[in-house]
Design a protein around this nucleic acid. Structure first.
Length: 457
RNA sequence: UCCGCAGUAGCUCAAUGGUAGAGCGUUCGGCUGUUAACCGAAGGGUUGGGGGUUCGAGUCCCUCCUGCGGAGCCA
């Protein structure tokens, strides 16, 4: 093998022997994730020191480079004195380049380790704030820019990345067109929620709380569309299920009726869960996620419960829920935990849903609306509906909700110029990441959480 | 906005109204296979701010600030 050093050295051979830095054997830059393919070779890793353990004449360096983690071993007798000194001086999160031979070793976490020949310290890290022990939430969030380097946070962001890619692939392969909605908007989308206000050259503008209204015109242009971007809610929510800024994916489909929408939501979620289980095994293991809790969500169908039945079930369980109420967190949890799968609650009273939702033809006091509730207390991950197709009906709803008609002229135009049935839903990314990863709070599901009283870093 | 909890070393937390403590991190020393390594030593404090009760306050009271959990609202 090329990596096996031929050099001797008066200090004697250890392991593969003393390896002269940058001479003799071929050396390649490698990412840690691909080290298993380089066993026996001399490679160079560029990264940071994650942790260090020493044992006299032996030093263990845990390196990370973003692609993974690997243990590097420095034998005092096997390297030049300056290399040993460099290794001893390394502090947590110092940046460095390590050259050495890749070896299989059962004692090493990951099965592969690097026998160090040379160390180039790029920058010593002084007093890294996040030690390998426990920390409080406030402290970690103040250091979110550094916390992202931690193994657990690394794993969560990998799952999020896989989810986002899965979402885009799901729609792309089904010939949906990505049409993004504006973030700066002139008026409230749904009228009720509190919006972040900003100055737009002397006019008031608001940060979008949903891309949906802008997506409906695009559905008339392309048939099947989706948007995917950040949305903003200025509600002073202080719960583990809320962020001020979160990401939402919203498909909107021309000619799709309510029942087909339910099928779409179900197919969407089940495929995404299966994808994560398949492709993020390592990450879920690091997160100690009990994946048996996710397995049921990979198979369809999901239970579909009529709102009226849901109320009856809750009352049977002892909740004080009345017909006409919206469900709280505990009620959602009780409904979803019956089957261990996400459940879809359908046909809510129109009074507690948005103005643009199509009335149920059987009972016009109900809306063709659906909420999908994730199990294990993760709450609503999807909210959707069939949209009102008729100009007159929408006009009436805008009036009933006391919305400024002028601001919705363009929205009414969709019904005026060739109205059509259409449906869509929105899915909150962080809630799904949170559920998949088994997080106890949404704040870990987004790189830089925006919460009440927190805008730093 | 409302209800509840908390703020002590860089970090996580102890401390009947009576001398301010531990673990981790840091520094120094030891150890040739560690897995959040371990062992020994050292350094590290205006107990969130202000006011009050008391011989004496980290501890009790008032007030403000900050954070956390929950409710409402929602994804």
């Amino acid at each position: 093998m090329r990596g096996q050093a031929q050099s001797s050295g008066s200090r004697g051979l250890v392991g593969w022997g003393r390896i002269p830095p940058f001479e003799g054997a071929a050396m390649v830059d490698a990412e840690i994730r691909e080290l298993a393919a380089h066993v026996g070779e001399v490679v160079r890793i560029q990264g940071w020191l994650y942790n260090k353990r020493s044992s006299g004449k032996l030093l263990f360096l845990v390196l990370r480079d973003g692609s993974g983690y690997v243990q590097a071993v420095v034998f005092r007798a096997g390297v030049e004195e300056r290399v040993w000194a460099a290794a001893e001086a390394l502090t947590q999160e110092s940046s460095l380049r390590v050259t050495g031979t890749v070896k299989e070793d059962r004692r090493s976490p990951g099965g592969v380790e690097i026998e160090v020949a040379d160390i180039e310290t790029v920058a010593l890290c002084p007093d890294y704030p996040i030690s390998p022990k426990e920390h409080g939430v406030d402290f970690l969030l103040n250091n979110r820019h550094l916390w992202l380097r931690s193994k657990r946070q690394h794993a969560i962001m990998r799952v999020r990345n896989e989810l986002v890619f899965g979402i885009r692939e799901f729609f792309y392969t089904r010939h949906y067109v990505n049409i993004d909605s504006p973030i700066l908007t002139p008026a409230a989308c749904e009228g009720t929620s509190t919006l972040f206000e900003t100055d737009y050259f002397g006019e008031k503008a608001y940060l979008s709380q949903s891309g949906q209204l802008y997506l409906e015109p695009a559905a008339a242009a392309h048939g099947k569309v989706y948007c995917f971007g950040p949305t903003f809610r200025a509600e002073k929510s202080k719960t583990r299920r809320h962020l001020m800024e979160f990401w939402m994916v919203e498909p909107e489909v021309a000619w799709m009726r309510f029942d087909a929408l339910l099928d779409l939501a179900e197919e969407f979620v089940s495929e995404l869960v299966a994808r994560i289980l398949d492709r993020c095994q390592q990450e879920l293991a690091w997160l100690e996620r009990d994946t048996s809790k996710l397995e049921p969500a990979t198979s369809r169908p999901y239970p579909r419960i009529d709102y009226g039945d849901a109320v009856a079930r809750l009352q049977h369980k002892g909740f004080p829920t009345q017909f006409g109420d919206d469900f709280g967190g505990d009620e959602e949890t009780a409904l979803a935990d019956e089957s261990g799968k996400p459940v879809m609650i359908t046909r809510y009273p129109a009074a507690i849903k948005a103005f643009y939702m199509e009335p149920d033809p059987v009972d016009p006091s109900r809306a063709l609306a659906v909420d999908m509730i994730a199990p294990e207390g993760y709450g609503e991950i999807i909210g959707g509906s069939e949209r009102i197709g008729s100009y007159e009906k929408l006009e009436e709803r805008i009036r009933e909700h006391g919305l400024p008609r002028q601001a919705f002229e363009w929205y009414l135009d969709i019904r005026k110029y060739g109205g059509f049935p259409h449906s869509g839903f929105g899915m909150g990314i962080e809630r799904v990441v949170s559920w998949l990863c088994g997080l106890s709070h949404l704040r870990e599901a987004i790189p830089y959480p925006r919460m009440l009283n927190r805008l730093y870093p």
